[in-house]
Amino acid sequence: MMRLGLIIVVTIVAAALLAPWLLPWDPSFQDLPNRLQGPTWAHWFGLDELGRDILARVLLGARVSLLVGTIVVGVSSVAGMVIGAVSGYYGGRIDQVIGRVMDVLMAFPGMLLAIALVAVLGPSLTNVVLALALIGWVGYARLVRGQVLRAREFEYVVAARALGASTARLLIRHVMPTALPPVMVQATLGMAGAMLSEAALSFLGLGVQPPTPSWGTMINGGRVHLLDAPHLTIFPGLCLAVVVLGFNFLGDGLRDAVDPKK
């Protein structure tokens, strides 16, 4: 399963990176006479409501999706690791304050909070990333806090302290390496979550604005033609499903791989 996940992820990432050279058609060229045309040899995924090539737009949409996923996971995991490490290592009042903030953020359904944030800040790709990172760090912070709580009692951490090592050195050299494997698993699964959330926000019109192609906006655009031209929704939807599945497979596989009990 992990191998399948890896193949899917690598394929999609490669396709997204190489998209400018792979594009079969100009993604903004409108072949209006043939709009809503189904899949043909010339247009594998068919044409959309404005006669644009869906394959080309799906490929460009993958870039948006992966970009959002990568930035969201990058920002929230780094922020989460720093906050979680500080919270777990120092304990006491700092831990209490951070813990309450996390409780508040966890109490909201994440999607609702993201929608509210984007609604306030205004719909744009930057704001989507901001909103998703703002709710995303909590998961990493809780994970890392737990690991750090455990690791700071390790005798080799105490021994390093007895050598005169600074707190920063202890955290980076001795504590964080034990916390990293679960963070990697979480980050992989987080990619799937972030891409799904971006699609959802774009579907609602809160994310990427047309004409920039995004899977969410494409699915939304095909909504009205669901009965007469289902390929408008099926292809971007399928891509999203496959990528999310791929990242989930990969995450599950990683989790098993780093599980010392296996």
């Binding site: 390790f154 005798e155 080799y156 105490v158 021994a159 050598l163 005169g164 090592a165 001795h174």
Partner: peptide, 20 residues
């Protein structure tokens, strides 16, 4: 911190646990 290690060294009971 300067005293630890440089002024006073410490040897622990469990060498396996005390080494990373």
């Amino acid at each position: 911190r300067k005293v630890r290690g440089a002024g006073i060294g410490f040897v622990f009971q469990e060498p396996m646990a005390a080494l990373n």
